[in-house]
Simulated scan of single mutants.
Amino acid sequence: MIIFKIDILKALKENGYNTTYLRKNKILSESTIQKIRNKDTSLTLKNLDVICSMLEMQPGDVVEFIKTE
Results as ranks from 00 to 15, higher is better:
T32C: 01
N25G: 06
V50D: 03
Y17V: 02
D49Q: 12
E30V: 15
K67C: 11
K39L: 12
T44F: 07
I2V: 13
K67F: 06
I2G: 01
C52Y: 05
Q34Y: 15
N25Q: 10
I33N: 06
V62Y: 05
F65L: 10
F65R: 03
N38L: 14
Y17L: 04
Q34V: 13
L22D: 00
E64W: 13
I51F: 00
K13W: 05
N47C: 06
Q58T: 14
L9E: 03
R37I: 03
K24C: 12
T44E: 09
E56N: 15
N47Q: 05
N47Y: 03
A11M: 09
T32K: 00
V50T: 11
I33S: 02
D40N: 14
D40E: 14
E69Q: 08
L9W: 11
T20C: 08
D7F: 07
L22F: 00
K5R: 15
I36R: 00
K10V: 08
S31T: 12
K10L: 12
K46A: 15
I36N: 00
L9M: 09
L43A: 07
I51H: 00
R23W: 14
Q58P: 01
I3W: 07
D49W: 09
R37T: 01
V63A: 05
L28M: 14
K26V: 06
E69F: 10
V62Q: 08
T20S: 13
D49F: 06
K26I: 02
K24R: 14
T32F: 00
D61M: 00
M54H: 06
M54A: 08
I36M: 00
E69D: 11
L43H: 05
N38Q: 15
G60M: 05
I66T: 03
T44D: 08
I27N: 08
S42R: 15
V63P: 12
M1W: 12
P59C: 01
D49V: 04
G16Q: 09
M54S: 03
K13L: 14
E69A: 04
E14H: 09
D61R: 00
L28W: 07
N47L: 01
Q34P: 08
S29H: 07
K39C: 09
L45T: 13
L12F: 11
D49C: 06
K13E: 09
K24F: 09
L28D: 11
D49P: 02
I66R: 04
K26Q: 11
Y21A: 09
I33E: 02
I3V: 15
C52M: 08
N15S: 10
T41A: 01
M1Q: 05
I2W: 03
K67G: 07
K39P: 14
I36C: 00
M1Y: 12
N47R: 01
K26R: 14
D49H: 11
K5H: 06
K5D: 05
N18S: 10
F65G: 01
N15G: 02
T68A: 12
I27K: 02
V50Q: 03
I66Y: 04
K5P: 02
T20G: 08
D7L: 12
D49L: 10
K24Y: 09
M54D: 06
